[in-house]
C-alpha cells in the first residue's frame, strides 16, 4: 500500500443537540456519536448513510461550523481548538452545499458572491486584483467572464452549483466538505459537475469529504467510503472493497439495495431487504444502533456497543459478529 499522509484526523467526535421536550426539559439528540476517522491528503472520502444519520452534522462539525460536544479535530498535525486555530483553519477548509437554489443570495451578482470570502479574509489588495481573482475562479469552474455581472437567479442549477464551487475555491482551500453537491441537479448536468470536482482535484491537489445519497456517484468519485448509521460510523474501507465485500450487515443491505442501471444485472440482483424504519436518534437502541433491523442480532448486540475496529488492511467495521457472519 502506498504511504498516505493524513490531512484530517477526527477522534471521538460527538455532536449532541439539545431538544426541548417540555417545560424546562430537554434531551440530547446524539446526531454524531463517537466518530473517529482520518482523511488522507489528496483523497476523496465518501460519506453515505440514510437520511438523518448525521452526515451533514459530521461535515459541519468537522469545519467547526458547530462546536463539537466532544472529540478532537486535528488538521495537518495541529489540533483545531483555539479561536486563532479555527480562523486559520477556515481558510484551508470550506464547504459546498447541496442546494444551488437556496445557498446563493439572489440579490448579489456572481462576482460579489464569488468575492465574498476574498473580502471576509482580506485576500486581495485592491479592486483590480479582486476582479482578476474572480475571473480566474470563474474560469476554473467553466463559467464565462460575461457571467460576472449577472445575478444568481439567472442561472441554471448546474451553473449555480459552479458558482457555489467557485466561491468555495476563493480562499484557495486544501480541503472541501461537499454536502450533496450534485443531488439537486438533473442527470445530464450531474456528470458535468462530477467531472469538474475530479478535474479540480487533479489540478489543485484538493482533498474532499464527499457526502451524497447516490451510491453510484459516491463510488465513482471516492477513493474510500465511510458508512454511517444513526450517528455512528459502522464501516470504512476502500471504495471498491466496500462495494465488492461490504462486511457490516447494514452496509450489505444498503449496497444491495442500490438499483444498478443495467437490466440484466438489476433483475438478477439479490437484495437484502431491511424492514421497518431507522429509529429516532432521540430513542437510539442500546448497544449496536443497527440491532433493531439486523438479521444477525443476538443478545450481546443489545448489551454493548460494538467497537469500530480494523478487520483487514484499511477496513474498519463496528459489528460484534463481523467475523462469524462473513
Amino acid at each position: 500500500m502506498p504511504e498516505h499522509q493524513t490531512l484530517v484526523e477526527v477522534q471521538g467526535l460527538k455532536e449532541y443537540f439539545q431538544i426541548n421536550t417540555g417545560f424546562f426539559r430537554s434531551r440530547p439528540l446524539k446526531a454524531v456519536d463517537d466518530v473517529s476517522f482520518t482523511i488522507h491528503k489528496g483523497e476523496t472520502l465518501g460519506l453515505v448513510g440514510e437520511s438523518g444519520c448525521g452526515k451533514t452534522t459530521v461535515g459541519r462539525t468537522l469545519l467547526h461550523l458547530y462546536k463539537p460536544t466532544a472529540g478532537k479535530i486535528i488538521y495537518d498535525g495541529k489540533e483545531i481548538e483555539s479561536r486563532e486555530s479555527i480562523r486559520e483553519y477556515r481558510r484551508k477548509a470550506t464547504m459546498v452545499f447541496q442546494d444551488p437554489y437556496s445557498s446563493l443570495n439572489p440579490r448579489m451578482t456572481v462576482s460579489d458572491i464569488v468575492a465574498e470570502p476574498l473580502d471576509v479574509h482580506h485576500l486581495t489588495a485592491n479592486a483590480k486584483e479582486r476582479h482578476e481573482r474572480v475571473l480566474e475562479l470563474m474560469g476554473l469552474v467553466g463559467l464565462n467572464s460575461e457571467h460576472a455581472s449577472r445575478y444568481a437567479h439567472e442561472f441554471s442549477g448546474g451553473q449555480r452549483q459552479r458558482i457555489g464551487i467557485a466561491r468555495a475555491l476563493a480562499v484557495n482551500p486544501e480541503f472541501i466538505v461537499c454536502d450533496e453537491p450534485v443531488s439537486a441537479l438533473d442527470v445530464s448536468i450531474q456528470a458535468q459537475v462530477i467531472n469538474m470536482f475530479d478535474e479540480l482535484q487533479d489540478k489543485l491537489g484538493l482533498t474532499y469529504l464527499f457526502i451524497a445519497h447516490d451510491l453510484l456517484v459516491v463510488r465513482h468519485i471516492s477513493d474510500r467510503i465511510a458508512v454511517m448509521y444513526l450517528g455512528r460510523m459502522v464501516e470504512l474501507a476502500d471504495a471498491k472493497e466496500i462495494y465488492d465485500h461490504p462486511l457490516h450487515p447494514y452496509s450489505q443491505s444498503l449496497l444491495s439495495a442500490v438499483p444498478l442501471p443495467d437490466p440484466k444485472i438489476a433483475r438478477a440482483n439479490k437484495r437484502i431487504m431491511l424492514t421497518g424504519d431507522i429509529p429516532s436518534p432521540l430513542n437510539a437502541p442500546t448497544g449496536c444502533p443497527f440491532r433493531t433491523r439486523c438479521r444477525y442480532a443476538t443478545a450481546k448486540c443489545a448489551e454493548s456497543m460494538p467497537p469500530f475496529e480494523k478487520v483487514a488492511d484499511g477496513h474498519f467495521v463496528a459489528c460484534h459478529r463481523v467475523k462469524e457472519i462473513n
Binding site: S188, N195, L216, V217, R219, L260
Partner: peptide
C-alpha cells in the same frame, strides 16, 4: 453520463 460499475475510474461523458 451516469456512473456505472463498468466505467469505474473513467471520466464520465456528460451531455
Amino acid at each position: 453520463s451516469i456512473p456505472t460499475v463498468g466505467n469505474d475510474g473513467q471520466r464520465l461523458q456528460p451531455i
